[in-house]
Design a binder for these strands. Sequence first.
DNA 1: ATAACCGTTGAAATCGTTACCAGAGATATT
DNA 2: AATATCTCTGGTAACGATTTCAACGGTTAT
Lengths: 338, 338
Amino acid sequence: MPTIKDVAKRAGVSVTTVSRVLNHHPHVTDELTERVLVAIEDLNYRPSRVAQRLRASHSRLVGVIFSDITNPFYVHVLRGIEHVLSRGGSSVLIGNADANTDREASFIRLMQTEDVGGLIIAPTREDSSALASAIEQGLAVAVVDRRMHNIEVDTVVVNNFEGSLKAIHHLIRLGHTRIGIVSGPLHLTTGRERYAGYLQAMADAGLRVDSSLACFGDYRQSSGYELSWQLISLPDPPTAVFVANNQMTIGALNAIHEAGRNIPSDIAVIGFDDLSWAISLNPPLTTVAQPAFEIGVNAARLLLERIANPRRPTYTVVLETELIVRASCGSPVQSKSS
Amino acid sequence: MPTIKDVAKRAGVSVTTVSRVLNHHPHVTDELTERVLVAIEDLNYRPSRVAQRLRASHSRLVGVIFSDITNPFYVHVLRGIEHVLSRGGSSVLIGNADANTDREASFIRLMQTEDVGGLIIAPTREDSSALASAIEQGLAVAVVDRRMHNIEVDTVVVNNFEGSLKAIHHLIRLGHTRIGIVSGPLHLTTGRERYAGYLQAMADAGLRVDSSLACFGDYRQSSGYELSWQLISLPDPPTAVFVANNQMTIGALNAIHEAGRNIPSDIAVIGFDDLSWAISLNPPLTTVAQPAFEIGVNAARLLLERIANPRRPTYTVVLETELIVRASCGSPVQSKSS
DNA sequence: ATAACCGTTGAAATCGTTACCAGAGATATT
DNA sequence: AATATCTCTGGTAACGATTTCAACGGTTAT
């Protein structure tokens, strides 16, 4: 591949001049600019981003670390990130932590050695020391999906509490009183907030929460499956269940079908996170949708701002969820218990 | 961040020696090795991959370009790739071409300026000149999912023809004779091969193919939706439909439910690509599954081999599909037409 | 005793850029 | 007319690593 030297030689100028036209510096005559441009075209030259990254102050590379790239929610966040970043000419280096804190730490490390200009991360825990020290060392970071504990950092989340509240209120409005929840883990803010929304909504309606109806998974499909089986096997099973993320919802649906229960007449189902195929289910799934793409867009913007101005105070952007009513909760039903 | 110089100073050796222990070179005494290791530990030093990439022959970075990262199939391929690559200490730079050839070309360009050691790509067209010239320039490339035309390159695909054949044979065995297909575009090898399997299976059974039952989409959800509406609106609609990829299957399901048709009694559905939620559908979806993870694993291995030995002849790995029979095609039905 | 060789180390060149500094003209200011 | 300022250009030193080359001391072979 041709280098800046080759271009300089062909244009009959110094490498400095080539670098100047490349970076749109002032004080270079039209004639030389033209000659350089022609040489660049002739040689089909593009500057090496590796060399630029080593020398220049900007990096034009951002790292993205997700706990599970298999989750379509994160893929849409990624698209939002990429949408903003590609306009700025940045590339995206991706890491899949697989919900493993050690892997996450080693990816953070990797991102630093790759000299990323910034990092967008959905952390596996809310007190990651690896992340804290990276920020301490001056790495620009934006956190998505989950909040951190004791770490000041730009953050983009949704109003999980409100979303959960909307879901349960919807169920209650339809007449349900025995409402189960397949919650996320309580060590994550999303898990706690969504669970809190459930409790609040029940309390608002003066409904007692039966502790056997609340179970806690790890956001994976398999735990949604197992916990749902557990719920529907109860002597007095819930008439409705709220599942706190998309993957667990898949598992829940699987269990319910396997048990031969009908949705929504035997049990109503409402999920968190919308999915492209939620509308193709039978019956179509009622969900609390998160604006995944916008989460990505906002995170990328926040990150760009912080890179431009590292001393800026930190922001937390909270986006709203949307209750999408389809058919999986049915029409208003009669309460079965007293 | 500390550099190799800081380590050298602290260990009281030259940077050359530090570099030697970093790269496990022979001929460095245990004592110096130990001193360097201690200094590295003390400073918490990690070599800059950017500097390494600029100077060294190896890059430890591979690019991955997909036409649609939103498609879970590609995400699983990506996981397979990452599984192999992370063991080799390589990072993954990702690009989402969005089925756009221009975007694809500019990503290929980007990968070259980022000095990737190799590229894994699911091309948008089978005669990409951008890809051809990149290979010409010595870039190590592995193609996945689709075959290239007139370009010798390592390739990993599945036996699409056979997979399609199995799907249609299954339908025929169940008694169907009016079988529709929502095919992919014929300008892609996957589209052509899967369509050819359909034609062959029909011919094998001595069935006439009604041209109004074959329609051609672009692998996106929306075209699956529209074309399926078209099929079921026919005066004499098919009793079974084969949908040639996962996203179009989502659209098809949506259309069929919207039309109030029952699966499988009104219309049997069989899809291509398995999905984590296929089992959670009602009824669970019968599909032709591709070994997505293994496709990624094989592509990464092929790429690593080629990087190690650029003059090696090109390989094409063809993996087999698996027919996963669930309930969306029902039990054997009586043929409705003569 | 001298030559040849081996193991061990460091100095310096290099990768492809950008940034700093200096210098040459041209123009403006005193 | 002398000086200051401004525009334009190029030489050269970084950035942080690897690689080549030479040198040094110690063994071994002749």
